[in-house]
Write a protein that binds this DNA or RNA. Structure first.
Lengths: 234, 234
DNA sequence: GTCTATAGAGGGATAGAC
DNA sequence: GTCTATCCCTCTATAGAC
């Protein structure tokens, strides 16, 4: 899988084009969702024709798979590293909430996709089912410790509430950014659970094992298209 | 506006067809969202051609407006009746949560539409902005009283959290209905706020002033198409 | 009130030139 | 590696017959 951190100079021309295509797909899917964006839209944004895009990816669905995979390469280590403390997991999620408030496009991508993907026929359906399973599991473990001997909510319910709160807030925030403070509202929920975190934003990205948790998407990808086989340049 | 309670016998043929079209549109939008459903899909489901649909509605957008208006005629009195007590408002919302768990299509409609409609260019954008404004306002007033002299969360934040929780839970529930109990999880949130409600479902629809709050959609409709002018039969 | 026919735009995907 | 050209499909919307 392409390493987004590798300097562009060291990439082949094909790799750079693939990168540009995924950048464009990310931005356009973010704005309007997967189904409403055409290959021609993506191609125009990336500066080539739709046939050019289909030289690098076998079909439209493959571009979506790559967009999601790349997000996971960046974020998965923050939440799936098994070496993470329970507190660090919550802090890292809070950091993501914080960063989201600066990247409305990214938020829009996940809001649109997670809604579309509730349809079992959607190409990203399995991906989102898997995603929420993994996140709920991690959070349930963390809350089991962090909630101490509280009896309500249960760690399982707290995990569902915590994730639901973030998703729901994103919709309200996209509709009216001025009236919703995602970070403060999530913090307030955690305080209600007796979990105190610093009021100030974290700013810098938390340090992580960059190799951790990269395979959240792996199963879903394999069921559809092997991303590795779609690069005719290597 | 058509009264959905009036017996079908007393409707003209045109009214019945319009009703069937809106029923079909509701079901299909619920399954796949607005943009992914075509007029031909709606027409086929309602048992006529797409040209037949366009005889009753000037364009696709008008069907969406009518679908949303009809939902509001049913649900708005439950949350916008000014004669409602603060406790009754929360109970009515809980009743809606309860009913939602029996109507996945309806849940899917709002999940898909509220995501699509975060785009300012979406025909239902203004509608959803308005919808959340009104709901937050009602809930803020209710929480101002119900939270007593708690200082955290503020009534405004509680209103945002309460709505966000419901929206986010719907996504998780649509993805994996077996692992999410929407009613119990919302109840647990309210208990955390010190608001105790009966553990058992409410079952029957709460009684309301059926005329209350019908104009949530009115402004948004007027800005696009006057629904009254689209029925050539009257 | 509903249909067929059609216009005109745009979608995904493929073949083959360069 | 990228293009043009093309196929074939589906979309929204309109015109006009019945």
């Amino acid at each position: 899988m392409t390493d987004p951190e590798r300097p562009r100079q060291r990439m082949t021309k094909g790799e750079r084009t693939r990168q540009r295509i995924i950048d464009s797909a990310t931005e356009l899917f973010s704005r309007s969702g997967y189904r409403a964006v055409s290959l021609r839209d993506i191609a125009a944004h990336a500066g080539l024709t739709h046939a050019g895009v289909l030289h690098h990816f076998p079909n439209k669905e493959a571009t979506l798979i790559h967009v999601l995979s790349r997000r996971d390469e960046i974020d998965a280590p923050l939440v799936l590293d098994p070496g993470l403390s329970h507190r660090a997991l919550i802090e890292n999620i809070l950091w993501i909430v914080e960063r989201n408030a600066d990247t409305p496009g990214l938020v829009s991508l996940y809001v649109n996709l997670s809604a579309e993907a509730t349809d079992p026929a959607h190409p990203a359906h399995k991906y989102f089912v898997q995603r929420y399973r993994v996140l709920r599991e991690s959070l349930t473990t963390a809350f089991t410790v962090l909630l101490g001997n509280r009896d309500t909510p249960s760690p399982q319910v707290a995990a569902q509430q915590f994730l639901a709160l973030q998703d729901g807030l994103q919709i309200q925030w996209l509709l009216e950014p001025e009236v919703v403070n995602m970070r403060a509202t999530v913090l307030s929920y955690l305080r209600g659970l007796g979990i105190e975190l610093p009021e100030e934003p974290i700013l810098r990205r938390p340090e992580t094992d960059l190799e951790a948790g990269h395979d959240l998407m792996a199963e879903a990808s394999r069921r559809t298209i092997d991303p590795g086989s779609t690069d005719p340049d290597r």
